[in-house]
């Protein structure tokens, strides 16, 4: 008896969760429907919640990256202000579908992930916050494989309000 009632409540919870997810997804996408339908991509919430860089890469892509000299990560040796660290990546790889940035010692390692549709040049420049001196990792997804470049950036004043 108790088993069946448990099962019943489980099903009910699943149904409710599903309904919630649909509602959220729908709301979040209304203003962006055309753009997101084209890119066919939703926000990778889970990957952004992961603490370590390895977990974030796994949550985002479901595979591991290999280091490659074809990924060029342009970051300063020393960042005086951890709140604004200019970081750019370029690559000579072709068929690039996404580029991601991770900061290994931040509370959540994944900082930004860019979807690169065909016809867009595989190069991105942006500015990230860094909590302290650590590795910055750039991941390039090319032809279904992951390639990475890593560089240590020394941070004089952390970007976490210390």
């Amino acid at each position: 008896m108790s088993l069946s009632s448990d099962r019943h409540s489980m099903t009910r919870r699943l149904v409710l969760q599903g309904a919630g997810a649909v509602a959220l997804f729908g709301l979040g996408n209304i203003p962006f429907a055309p753009a997101l339908a084209a890119a066919n991509d939703k926000y990778p919430e889970d990957a952004f919640k992961q603490k370590s860089d390895a977990d974030a890469i796994k949550a985002l892509y479901g595979k591991t990256a290999e280091a490659s000299d074809k990924v060029k990560l342009d970051a300063p040796e020393i960042a005086e202000n951890g709140a604004v660290v200019p970081i750019a990546v370029t690559t000579t790889l072709t068929e690039v579908s996404s580029i991601s940035f991770l900061v290994s010692e931040n509370p959540n390692a994944l900082a930004a992930s860019y979807v690169i549709p065909a016809g867009t040049v595989p190069a991105v420049a942006n500015r990230l916050k860094m909590a302290k001196t650590c590795n910055v990792i750039a991941i390039v997804e090319s032809g279904g494989k992951l390639y990475s470049a890593t560089k240590e950036v020394k941070v004089t004043v952390g970007g976490c309000g210390g």
Binding site: A39, N108, A112
Partner: peptide, 19 residues
């Protein structure tokens, strides 16, 4: 769509991006 950025909280204040 020519570019889509998924951002976390680690992107700097008043964000800048170039592509």
């Amino acid at each position: 769509s020519v570019f889509l950025a998924n951002w976390g909280a680690a992107v700097s204040k008043d964000p800048y991006v170039k592509f």
